[in-house]
Design a protein around this nucleic acid. Structure first.
Length: 601
RNA sequence: GCGCCCGUAGCUCAGCUGGAUAGAGCGUCGGCCUCCGGAGCCGAAGGUCAGAGGUUCGAAUCCUCUCGGGCGUACCA
């Protein structure tokens, strides 16, 4: 066979505006984009602007100050490496620049007690105690909104996730997607985006056809006929269950009816049952969608034809061996792709492209698809198809996650009964519960393989990270009960927060104040695991602080000390902890329990 | 073959824009614990950041190559 025909030259040249090698889409290049400063609390903002003023006085025109919280408390509350980054443009040694900056900095307006040059050119800043107190007050004032920001400016973004075919129960991969998609959606909401959650149903095409044939086979078997499920059909128990229900509801009316009408009725029945099943699991998992988009609707409303027409107009469509191809290689794909097979039916690729055009047309100029990495082959071609239609390069953005395996005693387990070859979300939910399942799906970055350790998941002690965080929250509530006060009524204005002087307390306050930045970073990187990590770390600090006040050993470090003023101040800190943990857990879709109840075994 | 992802402590994993002595949990070892909430607390040991080269004042992080693992590479979804 010769090479496929090529479109007319002039046309092609015009349309082929970009012809570059495929480039991996970094998750950091999404809607929020890199760059732009993270907020930080009022104290940090004051430090930043004071540093910028000082730098301007030193002749730096557009100072770009990066502030970080040093790991080592001895290195101050905040540190900047700006002297090192300016060394080449100012042509001076970093340490000298840092010394100048320290001298030029107005400590008063920065709210800084002292500034020290350290290491290769860091400027370490120790905040005045009152600045930390102010930030703590604003944290409590923020309450349920603490951690939210407006960087998204209310722009719409669609997050598509799960999008399971209606051909069986949801499996672990879908579970991870449900958790990820929902958490990423929440993160975007928390950072000021208008989020639309969508589920795309591939209810057309070959797979549902196979499902229908499989159900029919089981149905006929039910009536004693000697038929077998198609080789490439669905063999799980759920197919038999559906066939059983079909027989219960419709009797034997399909028994000798081999018409396509009968098959399509059976298909509709099966799809409806499976969707019900999936919906129930998603509801149990606590995930809601704003829209379920049906692939079949693209056939019905003419979107498919319109898409083909659009692609023809772009001059990138050609026929070859009876099939209709799209020249996706124009946009970096490894080979051209078939849109319509020689038998006249479309491949999944065409509706996929058509579907994504509707996202754009519905006003979602930012779209994120959460998918399993086993589908990564589709990314380039779908983006290519969309680019051919004039949509921007890199639309939509993809978050691809790796596979999930379940382990017990260090060995992989597959405890599926219903699905045949895979473990279902339902089975996992029944085994370990919603909160643990969600958290475990989120605690690793999406692109890393996830090992779901059942031994840890079933452990109800603080070795289980979920319980560790929830315990810390419950403990704070417990302290309020013990103190006989309503946590929400603990008033920072009525307390002298300068009494929070121990290192553990100061470090804890700083940790809590970091929450908004963590949310922003996690949202920008589509990385819910950063929230998990933050919560675990925070809970560790909280628990350690709490335990340091052991009544028999160090009663003076307990929250509920005799000293009324100190007690009030510490109760404010307890309230702040509770706010942050509750907000963080809520963001991930987890409960923040007032008290923990263990199941006795 | 080509493309994408991954490789950090015994295990599971963090590590933000390239920054100071690479962190956490589990496990191991050593202490403590009739505690505001229960399998808890404190501490210790444990590293050639897969390997090699490069860029840089500075690399786990950026670039190139090699090795190892996973996935993809259909007129399947």
């Amino acid at each position: 066979m010769g090479a496929p025909p090529r479109p007319p030259r002039g046309r092609r040249r015009k349309e082929a505006r970009t012809r570059r090698a495929p480039r991996p889409r970094r998750r950091t290049e999404g809607p929020v984009g890199p760059g732009g400063h993270m907020s930080g609390g009022p104290a940090e903002a004051a430090v930043r602007s004071a540093l910028e003023d000082a730098l301007r006085r030193m002749g730096v025109e557009e100072p770009d100050v990066h502030l970080e919280r040093p790991r080592d408390p001895a290195h101050g509350d905040l540190a900047t490496n700006v002297a090192m980054t300016l060394a080449s443009t100012l042509r001076k040694p970093p340490q000298e620049i840092a010394r100048e900056l320290a001298a030029e900095l107005s400590l008063e307006t920065a709210g800084v007690e002292r500034a020290e040059v350290a290491g290769p050119g860091f400027l370490n800043l120790h905040l005045r105690a009152d600045r930390l107190s102010e930030d703590l007050r604003s944290l409590v004032a923020g309450d349920e909104g603490f951690g939210r920001s407006e960087v998204g400016k209310g722009r719409p973004v669609m997050v598509e996730f799960v999008s399971a075919n209606p051909t069986g129960p949801l499996h672990l991969g879908h579970g991870r997607q449900a958790a990820l998609g929902d958490a990423i959606s929440s993160l975007l909401q928390w950072t000021g985006w208008k989020v639309h959650r969508e589920f795309y149903y591939n209810d057309a095409g070959r797979q549902v056809e196979l499902l229908a044939r499989s159900v029919r086979a089981r149905y006929l078997q039910h009536f004693g006929r000697d038929v077998s499920v198609p080789e490439d059909g669905y063999h799980g128990d759920f197919v038999t269950e559906i066939a059983q229900e079909l027989a219960d509801e419709k009797g034997d009316r399909f028994l000798d009816d081999e018409s396509s009408q009968a098959l399509s009725e059976m298909r509709a029945f099966a799809i409806q049952r499976i969707r019900q099943d999936q919906d129930r699991d998603l509801a149990a998992f606590g995930v809601r969608f704003d829209c379920y988009y049906l692939e079949t609707s693209l056939f019905e409303d003419g979107t498919l034809e319109a898409t083909i027409d659009g692609l023809r107009e772009a001059g990138l469509v050609y026929e070859h061996e009876g099939a209709l191809w799209l020249r996706t290689t124009e946009y970096g794909d490894q080979k051209d792709r078939v849109m319509v097979k020689s038998d006249g039916s479309p491949t999944y690729f065409l509706p996929d492209v058509a579907y994504h055009t509707t996202k754009w047309e519905r006003g979602f100029h930012h779209a994120i698809n959460v998918q399993g990495a086993d589908h990564h082959g589709t990314v380039t071609r779908v983006q290519a198809g969309l680019q051919a239609l004039g949509l921007p390069e890199g639309y939509p953005e993809y978050v691809l996650h790796q596979m999930v395996t379940v382990e017990r005693d260090g060995r992989e387990v597959k405890f599926s009964k219903r699905a045949g070859s895979y473990t279902t979300v339902r089975e996992l939910l029944d085994e370990v519960g919603v909160d643990v399942t969600r958290y475990f799906f989120l605690m690793r970055k999406p692109e890393a393989h996830l090992v779901f350790d059942l031994d840890v998941a079933l452990d109800q002690s603080e070795k289980n990270p979920v319980y560790k965080v929830q315990y810390a929250h419950a403990r704070m509530c417990s302290i309020f009960r013990k103190a006989g006060v309503e946590g929400d009524e603990v008033d920072p204005a009525a307390a002298d927060l300068s009494l929070l002087t121990t290192e553990a307390e100061r470090e804890l306050v700083k940790q809590l104040l970091e929450f908004p930045q963590v949310v922003e970073t996690a949202a920008r990187h589509r990385a819910p695991h950063l929230i998990c990590e933050y919560l675990e770390h925070t809970a560790g600090q909280v628990n350690s602080w709490y335990h340091s006040g052991n009544p028999t050993r160090n009663p003076e470090l307990a929250v509920l000390v005799e000293d009324e003023a100190l007690r009030k101040a510490r109760l404010v800190l307890v309230r702040a902890v509770r706010i942050v943990l509750r907000n963080g857990l809520g963001l991930l879709g987890l409960q923040a329990p007032i008290r923990m109840q263990r199941e006795s075994s």
